[in-house]
Structure formats: structure tokens, C-alpha cells
């Protein structure tokens, strides 16, 4: 079972509200570089990037700082993380992020805050 953010690029209007919501919630600032969901505008549909909870990062973490919750969400345990960022390199979708000079990676935990503010219904939290 895993709980993740399902994205629907064909409905996305690239308003970036989701990024604002996320970065405000977790970093108390409006900065797309600090959002766990990233919207990249392309000539075609927008590219929507958020963790799909595939757990590739969990396998490479040397300190077992990445764990999977009972709902199937990958979580970063800052008490155990030593900031090596091997998880960022291992992520097949580029959905693990870091801040400049920061000590811990961050990622989408499917909290659903962005779902509530998305005006186009382009994001949903699903459980499979």
C-alpha cells in the first residue's frame, strides 16, 4: 500500500499555487525552490514533479533515516539523517530536494495541502 500525490498535467494550468502552498507550509516562505511539488512549464503540458513513494531512496539510505509509514509514505527522520544526499541521486523522478547548504533532504509526504488550494483539480492524494 502506498499513499501518494497523483498529478494530472492535462488539468494543470501552471499557476504554481501548489508550490506556494507547500513552501509556505514547510518553510514559511513563498519559494518554489522550497516546495516538495515542482511545476515546470514546457511547450507541451506542464511537468508536475512530486514523490510517488517508490522507495528507491529508502534502499540506499546508509543510516535508515528514510522510513515508510504505515500508510506507505516515505518519511525523512532528521534525527538519523547525516545529510549525504545519496537519496537525491537515487531518486528516479528527481523528487527528493535539498536547500542550499542545508543539512537534510525534503520531499512530498502526500499531506494534501496543495490539493486543497489547487484551482484546477490537477492534484489528488490517492492510496493504492
Amino acid at each position: 500500500m502506498k499513499k501518494f500525490l497523483k498529478t494530472m498535467p492535462d488539468q494543470c494550468i501552471a499557476c504554481h499555487v501548489c508550490e506556494s502552498t507547500c513552501s509556505n507550509l514547510y518553510f514559511k516562505t513563498d519559494d518554489a525552490e522550497l516546495s516538495c511539488i515542482r511545476i515546470t512549464e514546457t511547450e507541451d503540458l506542464p511537468h508536475m514533479n512530486a514523490c510517488n513513494q517508490c522507495e528507491a531512496c529508502v534502499k540506499v539510505c546508509p543510516t535508515k533515516a528514510l522510513t515508510v509509514s504505515p500508510q506507505g509514505v516515505v518519511l525523512v527522520n532528521k534525527k538519523l539523517c547525516i545529510g549525504c544526499y545519496m537519496c537525491i541521486a537515487a531518486c528516479p523522478t528527481g523528487s527528493m530536494f535539498r536547500t542550499q547548504g542545508g543539512l537534510y533532504p525534503f520531499k512530498c509526504i502526500a499531506c494534501g495541502a496543495c490539493v486543497k488550494t489547487c484551482p484546477a483539480d490537477a492534484i489528488r492524494v490517492v492510496q493504492e
Binding site: C81, I82, G83, C84, Y85, M86, I88, A89, A90, R98, Q100, G101, L103, Y104
Partner: peptide, 20 residues
């Protein structure tokens, strides 16, 4: 991640991530 207390942590991290 910063116990070695480098002068410029960002460069150490960026270079490491590039190799990862």
C-alpha cells in the same frame, strides 16, 4: 552533515551530489 565544519558546506554538498 556538517560535523566536519567546512568553510563552504554548499560546495562540498554540490560536488558530492554530482558524483552521487
Amino acid at each position: 552533515g556538517d560535523t566536519n565544519n567546512p568553510v563552504d558546506l554548499e560546495t562540498v554538498q554540490k560536488t558530492g551530489l554530482k558524483l552521487h
